[in-house]
Design a protein around this nucleic acid. Structure first.
Lengths: 208, 208
DNA sequence: GGGCAGACTGACTGTACGTTCAATTGACTG
DNA sequence: CAGTCAATTGAACGTACAGTCAGTCTGCCC
């Protein structure tokens, strides 16, 4: 019977998927903090105890599994939509556009992950608005620096605020890379690399 | 007496700073999830009840205040280190390098914010490693696409893995911008803008 | 010294939530 | 139909924490 699947295994597999699905749904609706076993059980229309039959390791394992399964699906989808036959630059452009398409269709699931607010802040609260004020204050500054470079025709006429945001993301992103220990290069070379990538991205075309 | 500061106000101000400082310290050490009033009180060497004298609105207000104060300081530092007299592109480059300098010296505080794991995952755990495996699998794919473009001399010989990471951050970043409702532009134009910024950043220099 | 005011304390309370397990259900078997 | 057993249930338990408040300490004034 090696290699075959028993009826029990199929049912078990089904229940597991059902629970993971419910977990992601709750995550999208209530955020990570608000994701409780009770809510997941309610969403899946099963009793609390049943969840422990399929996830005996408990809540953390359940949540992690739910997120991992979602991520794996996104990665698989990205790889699936690649066409290696295309011209190199075109292939990269497609990779980017496909990412947007895929992520847009998984928005509910990704929302909590991307925003990832370990502070448990509602955007539409006084605290949320205060954070936004501080952050947009910072963006305002970067935007104005970029805008004056545009006015001086030192860089091409991009949308300054968009570029400011991207720059901010590139910097925090590269710091995140360090904190995740995905790089061992010195901080300075990261800084240089980001500066070069960004400046080339926005620079005036050197010749027509 | 308008405009003067009483002794009580000075003491109060001092206690508030002390508590916020302690809160940030605990945050850096235990993560957001692990930041409890008890721990903050212990760190500040005062009793639990005292915290409620200075933060009667409770824990959330305390944590938000601690983070906000840290952020405000970072923004102020960034603006302070700007030199508007510099040439435009040089000014932008300095802005970037200064960001790294500032953020590096506030690493402890920023760690929890940047990593911002609402999932409560230790990097050095089985769950953490599993996440990293999935994510690096994704990076591997993007890296290979970029590398073959480099091999074909379609783009300049950047470090492919670094660029892959940056691209991933730019995409999630621009999605974050949407989720924070900091833009109202359609998804497609965001995708195009990121593609253009990135591709220009990595493209072979059109002429020497 | 005696009494007052206000800062400070930490044991206690209430609650939310993860986890357990005795009881129940229901499908299958002989 | 009685018996068996695995799947399921949800009340109950334990714990971690946010928040409270009666009591203590300290400095100040009369």
């Amino acid at each position: 019977m090696a290699g075959t699947v028993t009826k029990e295994e199929v049912i078990k597999e089904f229940r597991v998927r059902e629970i993971l699905e419910a977990a992601r749904s709750v995550m999208a609706r209530h955020g990570m903090q608000g994701t409780t076993i009770d809510r997941v059980a309610e969403e899946a229309k099963i009793a609390k105890g049943t969840i422990y039959l399929y996830f005996p390791k408990g809540k953390d394992d359940l949540v992690h599994s739910a997120v991992l399964e979602g991520l794996r699906e996104l990665v698989a989808e990205t790889i699936r939509s690649d066409d290696p036959a295309k011209a190199p630059v075109e292939r990269i452009r497609n990779l980017i556009l496909n990412q947007y398409r895929i992520q847009a269709s998984n928005q509910d699931f990704l929302k909590t992950l991307i925003i990832g607010n370990s502070l448990d802040i509602e955007l539409e609260s006084e605290a949320g608005r205060e954070f936004m004020r501080v952050y947009t204050g910072f963006l305002d500054f970067t935007t104005s620096v970029l805008q004056s470079a545009i006015d001086a025709r030192a860089i091409r006429p991009i949308e300054a605020r968009f570029a400011a945001f991207m720059l901010s993301e590139m910097i925090t992103g590269s710091l995140r890379r360090r904190l995740w220990m995905l790089t061992s290069s010195p901080l300075e070379s990261d800084a240089e690399a980001v500066a070069e990538l960004f400046l080339r991205g926005i620079q005036a075309v050197p010749c027509a």
